[in-house]
Amino acid sequence: MISINGLSKVFGNNVALREINLKMKKSEFMALFGPNGAGKTTLIKIMSTLIAPTSGAVVIDGYDIREEAIEIRKRIGVISHETYLYEDLSAQENLQFYGRMYEVDDIEERVSDVMSEVGLSPRADDLVRTFSRGMKQRLSIARAILHDPPILLLDEPYTGLDPHAVATFDRILEKSDISNKTVVMTTHMIGRGIEMSDRVAILRSGEIVYDVPRGQIRDEKHFKSIYESCIGEEL
């Protein structure tokens, strides 16, 4: 589903990603950990066609990231700590806008379906400006799954959410057919990441230094010790 070969990204004199190789099967859920500046966001942004790699190849669902970016964009949904929502439009208008951009069939129906899936139907006509952080993030899930993408890229989706909102976020994600989707999630919340994923990787200074199936991790504590030994500092 996702195949990354020798991917590097250099910003000026900074090497953000160094010779990344990564293969992901369909409906695999990978949690990607690493300290700030390790290149997690850069990796997600390259996979979502927002920035171009310096060298190397990324092929997603058979499409090359440089040549067929538009095909890839149709097949991915991105949720980041930024919501990509227009504050001066209502929740419904935001989804309708994105729905038309993705040429979703039966927009009205799909929007109201997704809206009830994330539990925001009663607030559909309210401006996003009036929403809480948690509600915005829920709406941002709705935005990302609107066109039913087979691949989800989540970049620090929990940032700024309180524990209750985090739980709601996870519940909605699980409800939204996530077991059939290929997912890459970066996060600092180790417990959450391990719980959701079936594959765990650690990125350090632009290199993948650890990559195992979820089954090899006994529990959160076990993984924390692995993480500390990989990164060389305490959590």
């Binding site: 979502s48 538009i70 929502l85 504050e87």
Partner: peptide, 18 residues
């Protein structure tokens, strides 16, 4: 400038259009 708030410009760039 309005697109810069909430990262909307990224949202637009993610849409499958030129």
């Amino acid at each position: 400038a309005s697109e810069k708030e909430q990262g909307c410009l990224d949202g637009l760039k993610l849409c499958p259009v030129d």
